[in-house]
Design a protein around this nucleic acid. Sequence first.
DNA 1: ACGATCGTGTTTATCGATATACCACCGTGT
DNA 2: ACACGGTGGTATATCGATAAACACGATCGT
Lengths: 333, 333
Amino acid sequence: MTTLKDVARASGVSVMTVSNVINGVPRVGPATRERVLGAIADLGYEVNLTARRLRSGTSGTVALVVPRADHPYFGELADAFTSVLRATGRHLVIEQSGASKEGELTALSQARLQMYDGVLLSAVGLQYADVDRVQADLPLVLLGEKPMPPQFDQIQLGNVEGAQLATAHLLDRGARSVALVGGLTGPTDGGMQDQRTEGWRAAHRAAGRTPDDRLILNPPALEMAASRQTIRDAVSGGLQLDAVFAITDQAAIGVVAGLRDVGLRVPDDVQVVGFDNLAIGAHLWPELTTVDPSNHWLVTEAVRLLERRMAGEHGDAEHLVTPVSLVVRGSTR
Amino acid sequence: MTTLKDVARASGVSVMTVSNVINGVPRVGPATRERVLGAIADLGYEVNLTARRLRSGTSGTVALVVPRADHPYFGELADAFTSVLRATGRHLVIEQSGASKEGELTALSQARLQMYDGVLLSAVGLQYADVDRVQADLPLVLLGEKPMPPQFDQIQLGNVEGAQLATAHLLDRGARSVALVGGLTGPTDGGMQDQRTEGWRAAHRAAGRTPDDRLILNPPALEMAASRQTIRDAVSGGLQLDAVFAITDQAAIGVVAGLRDVGLRVPDDVQVVGFDNLAIGAHLWPELTTVDPSNHWLVTEAVRLLERRMAGEHGDAEHLVTPVSLVVRGSTR
DNA sequence: ACGATCGTGTTTATCGATATACCACCGTGT
DNA sequence: ACACGGTGGTATATCGATAAACACGATCGT
C-alpha cells in the first residue's frame, strides 16, 4: 500500500508538503504542487481515511442508524439522505440496529459512533435513558418516534396528526367501525404506536364518537404476513368492521391481503388507510390511501440540524414535528 | 473522551496491561485484571475503533456496497447478511454506490474500502476494468451481475436459468406472446439484463419457437412507475401479448398495474412472472409468480468466501452461481 | 540600511491503540 | 549455587496522517 511517505520520496519533498497538496493548503509552490500531483497519480496513492480520522478527528462520513434495512420506509429514507448529503460533500453509511436490545446498544456505543462525524439515529426500540447516556458532544440528530433527551436535536413524524387525519377521513367517508391495526391498548411508552393510537382516539372524539378498544388489533410484528394473519383471525372471530387504519403501509398491505382472504372487498366492504406513503402504494390494487409523513422535509431539516452540530454549534436543541398530509387513493371511497 | 491512558492511570498499571485485559491476553494476573475492569467500568471507557484499525489493521466491520438502498431486494439482502455476520461476531454497514458512475467509483476507492475488513460488492454499473483496478489483497466478494475479474470470489444469481424457468413456465401455460420487460436488444455488456434476456431466448428455442424481438421492452428505469408506463404504452400502441416476464419483481408490480390501467386482467388476459421473490409478492393481488434466486444460499456462501479471505487465505477464487427455482402463484394460470 | 513580512518548506509532536522486545521475580532441578 | 523456564508486567516503536512551530532566503517599508 502506498503512503504519504512513498509519495514524498518519489517527488523529493517532505510528507507534510504532500499532505498540504492533498488538502489544498496554499503554501505550496505551483511547480512543487505539479510534481507532487504527478507522483500521486503515478503511484495511485489514496489517502488512508483511518489515519486521517485518528489524527484530525473527521472522516467525512455520516451514519444513519435504522432498526432494519428490509423495511422499505428506511430504504427510501436512506436514499433521500444519501443524495442530500452528497451535495454537502459527505458520505452516508447505513447501520442496522436490529430488533434486539443488544444490537441497538451496540450500534449506539461510543466506539461505533466515534467512527463518524455525525449520526442520524432512527432507533425505535431505545429508551430515553439509553440515549441519555450517549456523550452529548456527538453531533446526533434523533429521528426517534418517542420523546428523547432535550440535549439532542430531534425530528418526529406527525404521528398524532397523521393518524387523526387518516381516521377522520374514514369516519367522514361513512365508516362506523374503524379497526386500528398496530395500535396499543396497554401501558404506553410514548412510542410511534402509542402516538398513532392517540390520533385514532382523537379523531373519534372530534367526531363525537367513543373509540371502542375492541377494534384495536396488535399483530405480533408490524409486517405484512403478521398483519394479514391478524385481520383474518379477527374477522373470522366475528369482529364487525367497515374500515381499517393500519399504522404503517406495510401493515396495510397485509390487511388488504387478509381481507381478501376472508372474502371482503376493499374499499366496498372495508376501507383501508395506511401510513408512510411508500412508493409502492400507488401501484397496488386498490391503490392505497395513506398518510404522507413528508420524508423530504424530514431529510432536509435533519441534515440542516446535523450540519449545524458538525460545524460546532452548541445552541439549544430543536425538537421538530413533520407536517403530514393525506393522500387519497382507491382503498377508500 | 477517556482513553487507555486514563484507565491505566486510574488503575495504576501501564497502558499495555489495560490493552491486554481488553483483548483477553492471558498474561495478566487475576487481581490486576479485576482492578482494570473496575476502572474501565467506572470511567465508562470504550475502545477507539479508529485507533485500533490503524494499528492492528482490523475493525471487525464488513461493508455491503449496493447500488441503492430503496430497492427492497437489497434491503432483504442486507438484513440477511447482518444476521449471518452477527453470528461470526462481525458488524455490517451498508454503503450506497448510487446510480452515478462517480458514486460507484467513490465507493470502490481504496480509501473507502480500507476502512473495512472485508467488502461485499453488489454494484451493477461497474465494469470489469473498474473492479480489476482494485487492490487484489482486499477481502472482496463480488455479488456482481456481470462476469468479473478472476482474482476475486464472485457469486452470480442464476439469471439465465431463472429467466428460462420463468419463460418456459409461461409458454407451458399456453402463452404465445411472452413480452420481456427490462430486456435488452442492443450490444450486450453481459450484465443482468442481458443474462435474463438470454434465458428468455433460450426458453423459446427449447420450446421450438423463435423469440420475437419486438416483444422486448426496455423501460427507462427498472422501477415500478417506469415499467407501468412502458407496458401501458406498448399495449396502447397495439402490441399483442398474452404474457409478460418482467426481469425484476419491482418491474412486475409496475407491469401488473399498467395492464390494469389498460383494462387487461392478470392472469386471465395476460400472465405475469417476476424475478427476485420479494416478500411482498405473496401479498399482492394477484399474488406474484416469481423466480426465487436463493438469497439465503447466496448470503451463506458469500460469507463463507469472505471469511476465508479475511482469514488470510490466498487460494484460487471461486465463481459460483445460485440455484434458482420457480415460485408459482396467482399471476400465472 | 535594517528589522519586518512573506512565501515555501521542513521538523517535531501527536491522535489512541497494539506488537514486540525486554525485565524482574519466583520456584526448581542438578 | 547457578542456569532455566514460567509468570506478570513495563518500555519503546509504530500504524499513516495532520497541527503547530520553526527555518530561511527574498522582498518590503520607512
